[in-house]
Simulated scan of single mutants.
Amino acid sequence: MTEEQHSAAMREFTRVLGELTAELDPAGGWFGVFLRRDPEGLAVCFQGRDLLPWDVAEALLQDFAALHGLPAAERVYGLVREAYRVAAASYDARPGGRQALLDQLDVMIRERQYAAVRRRRLTGSTEGSPSAAEDSAGTGAELAWAEDDLRRASARCAELRRRLEALETAVATATAAAATAGAAGAVPGTEPDGAHPGHTRAGQAASRDGRTGSSAGAPASSSSG
Rank of each mutant, 00 (worst) to 15 (best):
A89C: 06
E12N: 02
S154C: 01
E165S: 08
S221E: 03
G213V: 12
L52A: 00
F31E: 05
A220Y: 11
A100S: 11
V44W: 01
R112E: 01
A83Q: 02
R162S: 12
S7E: 12
M1A: 15
T200N: 14
L105G: 08
L167F: 06
D25C: 10
S223K: 09
D148M: 11
G198Q: 02
G210S: 05
A27D: 08
R121G: 14
R162E: 07
A158K: 01
G189R: 04
E142S: 15
Q204C: 10
T2C: 12
D135P: 05
E12H: 09
G217S: 13
Y91C: 01
T139N: 04
H68L: 07
S224H: 03
A66L: 15
E40G: 04
Q99H: 04
G18E: 01
A93F: 11
R49Q: 03
R119F: 05
R81E: 05
E40I: 10
R118Q: 10
A216Q: 11
L51C: 04
A27Y: 04
G194Q: 08
D25T: 02
G124M: 14
L42H: 13
L67I: 08
S224A: 05
R49M: 00
E40R: 13
A184K: 14
V16Q: 08
L167T: 06
H199D: 07
Q104H: 15
G189D: 14
S7M: 09
A87G: 10
G217W: 13
G124W: 04
T21L: 07
E19D: 13
S207C: 15
A22S: 11
